[in-house]
Amino acid sequence: HNLTITQGKLFFHYNPKLCLSEIHKMEEVSGTKGRQERNDIALKTNGDQASCENELLKFSYIRTSFDKILLRWEPYWPPDFRDLLGFMLFYKEAPYQNVTEFDGQDACGSNSWTVVDIDPPLRSNDPKSQNHPGWLMRGLKPWTQYAIFVKTLVTFSDERRTYGAKSDIIYVQTDATNPSVPLDPISVSNSSSQIILKWKPPSDPNGNITHYLVFWERQAEDSELFELDYCLKGLKLPSRTWSPPFESEDSQKHNQSEYEDSAGECCSCPKTDSQILKELEESSFRKTFEDYLHNVVFVPRKTSSGTGAEDPRPSRKRRSLGDVGNVTVAVPTVAAFPNTSSTSVPTSPEEHRPFEKVVNKESLVISGLRHFTGYRIELQACNQDTPEERCSVAAYVSARTMPEAKADDIVGPVTHEIFENNVVHLMWQEPKEPNGLIVLYEVSYRRYGDEELHLCVSRKHFALERGCRLRGLSPGNYSVRIRATSLAGNGSWTEPTYFYVTDYLDVPSNIA
């Protein structure tokens, strides 16, 4: 807008934040220059609390790290170098490059900038070799853009010569660093050979998330399962459950009422301010606690030095998902009996873990797994792929695949051998790939016309006998059925096997 004052003059007093240069501009645009008398524009009460600059400061050096910015700028000295009290560095987070010096300023003089007072450097006698002032900004957020400017702080001049310097606002972004852990990993099994893994992005990506790394490792069953005799009275049979499938998407929606109208769909109840505040506090606490764990609990591995020492970490090797089922080394339970199943799973520490690289999504279907087997899954978020990966501390989750139908069934015939004193040795093959492992066998036998009897055969007993022995049988026709019990439950009964026990007292003698 054009402003013209045809008559009258300007009068400025007691404006401590208004620089004289701005008042002189007002004289020019209003056409009143030359009308004012000496005392109409006070030299001592206008701009006496402001830094009124008329020179431009330029930054000469900028260096960044993930949490620091090192700045240096060209030296500046007023005509009387004693008038320079120091520099004021202003900075704040700036997602967009549209910041002005006066953003967030209120009537009390406060604003949204963080201000650092910096002492002037030592003055050199040689004007050509003056030290460049600077400042190291610490405690910054990774991968965050900051708006920065600097200006001088000078003393009051009796001659009211307006001098000083100020830089333009520059924008500097800190470097990326390792992201925080992925949030809320959930693993479920939808079949006997697959596990579905879902997660949420890290709360602090500290860069642009480029991919996720998912490692999985087959877990050995508890050692007590191999040692305890679950045929003993009072000892509860062990059981394991597989990871249940995901709930429906509708039930997972946030901010939804727990109660549904019987007449149909209901609208979600909005969260109160107290609920939102509580969630923010919980989120802040979780982030602080995660940072504490990362800094205190997890110790970084030592990389190899120039002395030739090897990095103890196993090298990563990509495998196809079809090879995942046989990740671990199978060892027989008892070496003397080769027909026992290889369900003991000690994992070799030198073995390469299978892994998958996930790009542009937060889910993965891990296939080719062994049925009813526990897996430990390790999830890392990465925001750099080359020249070397920059990934987060791992988040861990466990899951067990679903049982395989008929995996616990005894394959092959049940054979028998009759000894003296009416002892019958029953023999059968253990299931080759049971659900988890076989903890015991149930032997059901009966003599024709009598009630059915049951015998429990422990895992250890089966390994020693290759089956079991029935003792003290009365003469007669017998039928026997056997079924295995694994961590997933009972298998199917075998087809009945028949044998006849004679009275050993009636056996004919070869003595003449």
Rank of each mutant, 00 (worst) to 15 (best):
P244H: 13
L470S: 01
F246R: 05
P300S: 07
S320E: 09
T502M: 15
E351L: 15
N421M: 13
Y445S: 04
G234S: 11
P354K: 05
F298N: 13
G449V: 00
R318N: 09
V457L: 14
H425T: 07
S262T: 10
Q380F: 15
C391R: 01
S474D: 07
A394R: 06
S509I: 15
Y292G: 02
R319Y: 03
E281M: 06
V214K: 00
S486G: 11
N255T: 11
A394W: 13
V501M: 05
G476Y: 00
G374F: 13
V327N: 07
S315Y: 10
K317R: 09
R240F: 14
D311S: 15
P475S: 08
D385E: 13
L487H: 00
S398V: 12
G467W: 02
E282W: 15
V411S: 14
E404V: 10
S474F: 09
E217Y: 15
G325H: 09
S344Q: 09
A335Q: 07
T347K: 08
T241K: 09
V439R: 08
S458V: 03
D385W: 07
E451S: 15
V297Y: 12
P238F: 11
Y498D: 07
K317H: 14
I209V: 12
E265K: 09
E258A: 11
A484L: 02
D229L: 07
G472L: 09
V359G: 09
L437T: 00
G325C: 14
V439T: 10
F298H: 14
K302V: 06
F215T: 05
T494S: 13
E281I: 15
W428P: 00
S486R: 02
T210N: 03
F298L: 05
T307V: 08
V501D: 02
A484S: 04
T241L: 04
S243H: 12
N206T: 04
D229R: 03
P431V: 05
G449T: 12
I366Y: 01
S341Q: 15
L453T: 08
P205T: 03
V365S: 09
R286Y: 09
D323A: 11
I482V: 14
G368H: 04
C231V: 03
T288H: 05
W242R: 07
L453C: 04
T272A: 10
N208E: 09
L505W: 04
I366E: 00
E442Q: 06
S283L: 08
T415Q: 13
S344V: 08
G207R: 03
T401E: 03
C456L: 02
P403W: 13
E260H: 15
P387H: 06
F355I: 11
A335G: 07
G449P: 10
F215Y: 10
D291N: 15
T272P: 12
L277T: 04
V457A: 03
G489P: 02
S344L: 09
D229Q: 07
E351D: 11
N477P: 07
V297H: 13
F215P: 01
R459Q: 12
Q380E: 11
V296P: 10
S486N: 01
A407F: 10
T401Q: 00
R218I: 09
N490C: 11
R313D: 03
E221S: 14
H416W: 09
R353S: 12
N435D: 01
S341M: 12
N422C: 06
S262Y: 10
S257L: 11
F372L: 05
T333S: 05
